[in-house]
């Protein structure tokens, strides 16, 4: 397996707050990597830096061989993001939203049509295809939002809290979809739901107050902390504060 993302000593300071403090991790190609942490842990900030929405104060990340500080244009072409807040064009229909994004990424008409149809099938969007995005429920909007990220054929897909605010059924459905698409793309997702991290991730990084406190497979994290559930492992890791565990 090859390394898709190599993050080294990333740091982000805001005027009054250091949101992430010297984090490093790597993600293997073709796997799902989760940043697990409570609100304010620094997950979104990390994703923003990796996607070029925000510049790091220090450190760098290399995405499939391209540095985010020196080759951002190349990085942007091979990655895409479904933001924490569902971001769809509210007055466009589901199909138009997908076609719009494909166009922005330079796909020609035939390719746009082909990929749009593929996304509509993959995310079962047929019944809402002609509806304006603003009338869709949270679950539909979230599916559209992820489809809009996947339609550009990214090599790396970032999902920031993909099931935040969804009901049980919508969440289960989205998990099934994520399991389906993980065969095509390397996924980095953030979540504060233990069940979600455990079900979807190959590896998990536990983030506490801007630092990564532990990294491993769900089984490794449980073994390291001597606990039976990921939730207990998470609590132990979070309480341990600054003692870094891992390999």
């Amino acid at each position: 397996m090859s390394t898709a993302i190599e993050v080294s000593h990333l740091r982000k300071e805001f005027r009054l707050k250091t949101a992430i403090k010297d984090i490093s991790f790597s993600v293997e190609a073709g796997t799902v990597f989760s940043l697990l942490g409570v609100n304010g842990a620094g997950k979104t900030t990390t994703i923003r830096i990796l996607t070029g929405l925000s510049r790091p104060t220090a450190g760098d990340a290399v995405i499939l061989g391209h540095s985010i500080s020196r080759e951002l244009d190349l990085v942007k072409k091979i990655s895409n993001l479904s933001p924490q807040e569902t971001s769809v064009a509210s007055n466009l229909t589901v199909r138009e939203n997908l076609e719009f994004i494909a166009g922005i990424y330079g796909m020609n008409k035939a390719k746009t049509e082909e990929n749009t149809n593929r996304m509509i099938a993959l995310f079962s969007l047929e019944e809402v295809e002609k509806s304006k995005a603003k009338i869709l429920s949270g679950g539909w909007q979230r599916k559209l939002s992820i489809a809009m990220a996947l339609i550009t054929e990214p090599k790396i897909l970032y999902l920031d809290e993909p099931t935040l605010g969804l009901d049980v059924l919508a969440r289960k459905e989205l998990w099934n979809i994520i399991e389906k698409i993980k065969e095509q793309v390397t996924i980095v997702l953030t979540t504060h739901y233990m069940e979600e991290a455990e079900r979807l991730s190959d590896r998990i990084a536990v983030m506490v107050s801007g630092e990564i406190q532990a990294v491993g497979t769900p089984e490794e994290l449980k073994a390291q902390t001597g606990t039976d559930t990921l939730e207990d492992a998470f609590i132990k890791i979070a309480e341990r504060g600054n003692v870094v565990c891992g390999h």
Partner: peptide, 13 residues
């Protein structure tokens, strides 16, 4: 005011 622009900011726009 919406996160829609985020999407375009990560794009090559």
């Amino acid at each position: 005011s919406t996160a829609f622009l985020l999407r375009l900011y990560v794009s090559p726009m």
